[in-house]
């Protein structure tokens, strides 16, 4: 198992290096002339050249990449063009706010979708199974801003239960009510995937020989479901929950824009609109790191929790 985990870690690092190269190429090479982009059309050629030199853009690309990534690895995320201030000053608080929103979404979606998926599997073929599956599929494929609009119209405008905008300032519990609507919009997208996986895992476990044995030896249905089915069926669900963090972050860009919430999605969006490439690159790289960490942790958890994989190395 140790060898597998090391291999997995190595792949994650390799992926991260490749990802950083992609971000570097997209952020530093494709836009052409950053000096011109920063100073605008009317700046003199010499000023543009001086700024490009100051930014290190006259050096060869591999040198630029190395400078950029080694500064990044030391925690220096560069200076934002739009604010003329260190990127980290904006990025970390924004990431924290996004995590708060993500936590609220996950706290709602994980139990809900596991319950939904397991219920669907236990009632396989019946109406409730169809309803949960179809609802999950439909919700998962509707863009977050579409379901977000519907939620706002119903709960914020018609019923006036919750605010239209999400608050960014204040402690977690003061902003919590305003996070519920954006979190639910994210829950809609995530529910379908996680529930589908929980259902598939449960169906597979229900069809297995050990569950038949457990039933035939006379164990009550409850015991069979909780002791034998769920323990096996929920393992793959862990992996799906982790891979969904990627979708979650994509969704955050949209949801934070719609609900006017100052998270990392909104930060990246604003950076993109104002061509603030250092901020954009840093934000995207941080998102990549978060995603890779989440999938890595999920793989490790999966291996640790699954006795078949855990014991493989020991044999």
């Amino acid at each position: 198992m140790g060898k597998y985990l090391l291999e997995r870690l190595g792949l994650a690092v390799l992926t991260l290096v490749l990802l950083s190269m992609i971000v570097f190429v997209a952020g530093q090479v494709l836009p052409g002339n950053p000096g011109r982009a920063i100073l605008g059309h009317f700046a003199s050629q010499s000023a543009v050249a001086a700024l490009n030199r100051q930014l290190g853009l006259d050096k060869p690309l591999p040198v630029q990449y190395w400078d950029w990534i080694s500064r990044f690895a030391q925690g220096n995320l560069g200076r934002s063009y739009q604010y003329s201030a260190p990127v980290s000053q904006f990025l970390w608080p924004a990431l924290g706010r996004s995590l708060e929103l993500a936590v609220v979404a996950f706290v709602i979606v994980v139990p809900l979708s596991i319950l939904g998926g397991v219920t669907a599997a236990l009632n396989r073929g019946k109406a409730i199974d169809r309803i949960i599956s179809i609802a999950g599929l439909s919700l998962a494929t509707v863009p977050e801003f579409v379901s977000g609009i519907v939620l706002i119209v119903i709960f914020a405008i018609e019923l006036e239960w919750l605010p239209v905008d999400a608050q960014s300032q204040g402690s977690f519990f003061t902003v919590l009510p305003s996070l519920i609507l954006p979190a639910i919009a994210l829950v809609f997208v995530l529910f379908g995937y996680i529930a589908r996986m929980a259902r598939a895992g449960t169906v597979e476990a229900l069809d297995s020989d050990y569950v038949r044995t457990a039933t035939l030896k006379g164990l009550p249905r409850r015991t069979v479901v909780f002791r034998h089915v769920l323990r096996n069926s929920l393992l793959p669900t862990i992996t799906v929950i982790a891979t969904q963090t990627g979708y979650l972050i994509g969704g955050l860009v949209v949801i934070e824009t719609l609900f006017n919430y100052q998270g990392i999605g909104r930060l990246i969006y604003d950076a993109a609109l104002s061509k603030d490439f250092p901020m954009l690159e840093a934000g995207i790289l941080v998102i990549g790191v978060v995603y890779l960490l989440a999938t890595l942790i999920a793989d490790v958890l999966y291996t640790v929790l699954n006795p078949r994989l855990r014991l493989q190395g020991a044999e």
Binding site: L18, I22, P31, G246, G250, I268, A272, L280, I284, I287
Partner: peptide, 19 residues
């Protein structure tokens, strides 16, 4: 794999802003 570590919307973002 490296590309797929990012949500499609974010990849699109990066390149649409660049081009």
């Amino acid at each position: 794999e490296a590309f797929l570590a990012l949500p499609v919307v974010i990849v699109a973002f990066l390149f649409i802003v660049a081009v």
